[in-house]
Amino acid sequence: MARAVLALGANIGEPAHQIAKAIEAIAGHPQIFLLKQSKLIVSEPWGKTDQNRFHNGAVLIETTLSPLELLDFCLATEAEIGRVRIEKWGPRSIDIDVITYDDLTMESERLTLPHPYAHERDFVLGPVREIAPDMADWLLNQAGRKSA
């Protein structure tokens, strides 16, 4: 069983409802066990700033899915909720990012772990710190190692 953190965000449609739907799908997967869920926060957009504010949160899970299987599930869930990818960091009905997967570090065409920008985003670190302070500390430690 691997322990992972997923970050969720949305800024179009009904963000809180879409995030709740995503968490329901996560909790309903037979190979995913929802351990903790953060409160939702509202934050300014990051990267592309001329858009609506985001609702953000995170979940701590245990799973028997591999990292890429987990990514595929997240992408399929986004599509089911209506996510259409038009522009990088643009408006979205739902975003589900794999932030950590145990203490695995990996870089592939499809997935980088830990998430390469998580340590720079308070809207990720705050919810992660709420549900898994050890993982938030690990994210910051990994970022420090990369910059050294």
Rank of each mutant, 00 (worst) to 15 (best):
V98S: 00
Y101M: 11
V98I: 07
L34F: 13
T100G: 05
M135Q: 12
T49C: 08
A76S: 11
R110L: 15
A132R: 01
Y117V: 08
V128W: 04
A2R: 05
L70K: 14
D72C: 11
T49A: 10
E109S: 12
D102T: 02
Y101C: 04
M1T: 13
A7T: 03
G82E: 08
G13D: 02
L68T: 08
L60D: 00
A20D: 12
E24G: 13
R145K: 15
G9F: 04
D95R: 04
E78K: 12
A22F: 04
E14C: 07
G82P: 02
P116T: 06
W138F: 13
I94S: 02
I86L: 14
R53N: 04
A148L: 14
W138P: 00
D102E: 08
T77M: 03
Q18T: 09
Q142H: 10
K36H: 12
A16R: 14
I41L: 06
T105N: 00
T64V: 10
P91V: 04
K146F: 03
L65M: 11
Q18L: 10
I86N: 11
C74T: 10
A7D: 00
R92T: 01
I26G: 01
A132M: 05
A76F: 13
H17D: 07
D137I: 00
A76E: 11
R110V: 13
E107Q: 14
E78W: 09
